[in-house]
Design a protein around this nucleic acid. Structure first.
Lengths: 193, 193
DNA sequence: GTCTATATTCCGATAGAC
DNA sequence: GTCTATCGGAATATAGAC
């Protein structure tokens, strides 16, 4: 049962995907959510409050779709799980697009906003470590430092490719192909062990 | 001889590096350039015009410092020139920081701004082709499609690493190390020819 | 070409009725 | 809790003198 707040947050995620964090206008959000502007201020205090809650909302949702799998799906090999985790972010679905857009906005905003830096650096580190762990399962004989470096490269590349996709400089199939090639190359470099 | 337009564009690059594309106010730009706001509209028609011309200006300038070398420097091997070209963008100097910041902003803005997309896609393509040509000189036996794919990955990775650096998620030395590793890996994958 | 002064538009935020 | 109506400030853009 979607509460009014949730309904507004869902609308906010859509508006941010369409206009960006800086392009979010309270009036447009109100129209998208089908409520009055006054109601938004009633629930969220001010525009910044909307932004804060929306970014929480989006990152919670992202964690869900990244982690969740159907219980009756066949278990994946470590390599497939690695590929799945990385390629999941290169899909043209509403959820992924909204999430990637928000992530790109956060990354770009953090360049000018001290406050965002720490949270974003921590989230990045967690993500890198998760990928490094998957690499460790595929190539257990390689040293941890090599896993870490490869994970940093793969995740940074993914961010770069996402931005190119969202900014219309490349297509999803092409980005996926490039990402897949990078995974193969990194695994090769980590040895056939 | 810096014309008025150039003077304004240089100021725009500085303001964008400080506040971002989103944070660029015509009034602040006028103050930074030491001119009136009216003059900016006279030369650039509107705010979007400033942004577009600044993108051109920045990518031209980047090409210059990427390409220029002192005539009496010893000639580089193709491989060194490739590494030099890519690692040049990971340096903590005013010029590189300004360019990278502006580039990141333009990339992020293009996600929501149709007008910027075409120019940015074209500039990206030129850059990718330049890197692909360098790869072709290092690995002449590999197919052009492989050069192109590797160039896309290396440049996208560089964009990702730049953003991490600028947003405080990694350091320049570390980013350079990662970039260097990626160059090695891509060249290995292209064969020892 | 460049300025000062000002018009115009947009947008966040609030007051007050229901 | 929700709406209608509106205010006030900030930013873009223009008019007109020099």
């Amino acid at each position: 049962m979607a509460s009014r707040s949730t309904q507004i947050l869902e609308a906010a995620a859509r508006v941010i995907a369409r206009r960006g964090v800086r392009g979010l206008r309270v009036e447009e959000l109100a129209a998208e959510a089908g409520v009055s502007t006054a109601l938004i201020y009633y629930h969220f205090k001010d525009r910044t409050g909307v932004l804060r809650r929306t970014l929480e909302f989006i990152s919670d949702r992202a964690e869900r779709y990244t982690t969740d799998r159907h219980p009756d799906d066949p278990p994946l090999t470590p390599r497939d799980e690695l590929a799945r985790t990385l390629l999941l972010e290169l899909q043209d679905t509403t959820e992924v697009r909204e999430n990637s857009t928000a992530w790109g906005e956060l990354r770009a905003s953090a360049v000018f906003d001290e406050v965002l830096r720490e949270d974003l650096a921590r989230a990045t580190l967690e993500w890198v470590q998760e990928v490094a762990a998957l690499l460790g399962r595929v190539r257990p004989m390689a040293p941890a430092s090599a896993h870490a470096a490869a994970a940093e490269r793969l995740t940074a590349l993914l961010e770069g490719l996402s931005m190119r996709w969202l900014s219309g400089a490349t297509t999803i199939p092409h980005a996926r192909e490039l990402m897949h090639g990078a995974i193969t190359a990194e695994l090769d470099a980590l040895g056939q062990s």
